[in-house]
Write a protein that binds this DNA or RNA. Sequence first.
DNA 1: CGGGTCTTTGACCAAGGTCAATACGCGTGG
DNA 2: CCACGCGTATTGACCTTGGTCAAAGACCCG
Lengths: 256, 256
Amino acid sequence: MSPFRQSVHSEAFVLAMDRSIGELFVRHLSLFGTLSEADRHALLNIKGRIGVLEKGQDILRVGDKPTHVVAVLSGMLQRYTLDAEGERQIHSFYLGGDVPSLEGLHIDVMDNALGAVTTSRVALVTHVDMFALLHAHPNLAALCWRETLVQAAVFREWLARNSKKLAHAQTAHLFCEMITRAKANGLSDGKSMSLPVTQKDLADALGMSVVHVNRTLQTLRSTGEVELKNGILTIGDFATVADLAGFDPAYLHLTA
Amino acid sequence: MSPFRQSVHSEAFVLAMDRSIGELFVRHLSLFGTLSEADRHALLNIKGRIGVLEKGQDILRVGDKPTHVVAVLSGMLQRYTLDAEGERQIHSFYLGGDVPSLEGLHIDVMDNALGAVTTSRVALVTHVDMFALLHAHPNLAALCWRETLVQAAVFREWLARNSKKLAHAQTAHLFCEMITRAKANGLSDGKSMSLPVTQKDLADALGMSVVHVNRTLQTLRSTGEVELKNGILTIGDFATVADLAGFDPAYLHLTA
DNA sequence: CGGGTCTTTGACCAAGGTCAATACGCGTGG
DNA sequence: CCACGCGTATTGACCTTGGTCAAAGACCCG
């Protein structure tokens, strides 16, 4: 049992008294469609609890029956699984502004875990509240459904990337995705972003060994176009890197 | 333009006069949850068109705006993408009884294609009809949403498989999935099934070369536990193969 | 019988994994 | 302030898996 999960209802997770959670949902869902004034108003009134997830802590584990929707206020989460040998596969990274667990609304048992890559602030909204909201606003239900479908598209892209591309293209592709999503979330200017991952994290996302990740990063660094240092990812010319990576943002289905 | 797509409304696709489409939906959705009598009744009245998709033909292409939900009556479909070099990545196979494209209800533009691995009979239901149905039966909407989430779980599993496992384990894992799903659809006794794929198809699903697929199949065959011949997959002892593959069906979220 | 598709084989090659040692950075306690 | 310890990054040597290329069978169907 994660100590965190036991404290979801304790003081560690305090009721949000402002509209920060609602604002996050408004911004996030706006990435995938249009909100009516009524939708916006309803979202802004979302009530939830806010707390801190320490680096390495899980908020959802395999086998859990989710009861809350999780939103990332700041920091970075990972969705991952462990195989029989204890090897981790990271399926996605989530940045501030992302809502990783809308899927939990209709999945009874988690087949993967959600944890903090770095110390993060997260918000929790009960499924009960979410269902009430979605029931009253069918357009929001459609948008949330759509959001989960876009996440599925991202999984497919990761599948294609990890199955086919060479190490440097894989790595560049992941970086392009992260920068593009960070920009959409207002966390990047398209040139650099906070990416607080270790090389082991990258290895477990890309399906490569740490040693090879290290060497690949050096290669990319030597081109002068890509640098990851002290948790800051910097890209020279996005188009150049995207080309190297074979990156096409269509799968992210961003309306912007 | 696919000639097929142009003929969706022509005589090639004839109105189904019986309940075969509705029955397919009832069986399929029952795999993921419970249907009320009203749900069942509504589903059975689904109207759609039925037609044949020749081997290699696409029913949806990248860039298309889907207008119908596709259900597989018989045969086998693949979801796939092509990269810049024309390399295909298969993201999933769909058997008779599967409904590959519920996601199309809320995705405006396809970022992947759906085509026939082998000559198949497919049914089409208009989005208009589906939306009316889901609007009138919120429980069905929840179930359809859930179905798309299970598909996402399958994409994640493919990601983990293709990223980490060795060739023989990858191949065995895919076979375990296919047999398990075929069994759920009433198309297999758990020992063998129709799997009309070429070695190239497997290669493009598993992210390996055809040559290596060929050698891997030979290795598996030599264990006496796995054989793929003339489009028929046969497994000796499922538990043995599942163990070799590191296969755990939890991600399929089957209620049965 | 001829041509296309699919499978199989052999020889060789390269990307990336493994193992083990070393270096670096940073926080903690003395 | 410095030594220590831990997690992370880096390097080198070596090895395995699986890719590539090219040719030859098999099979199928008109």
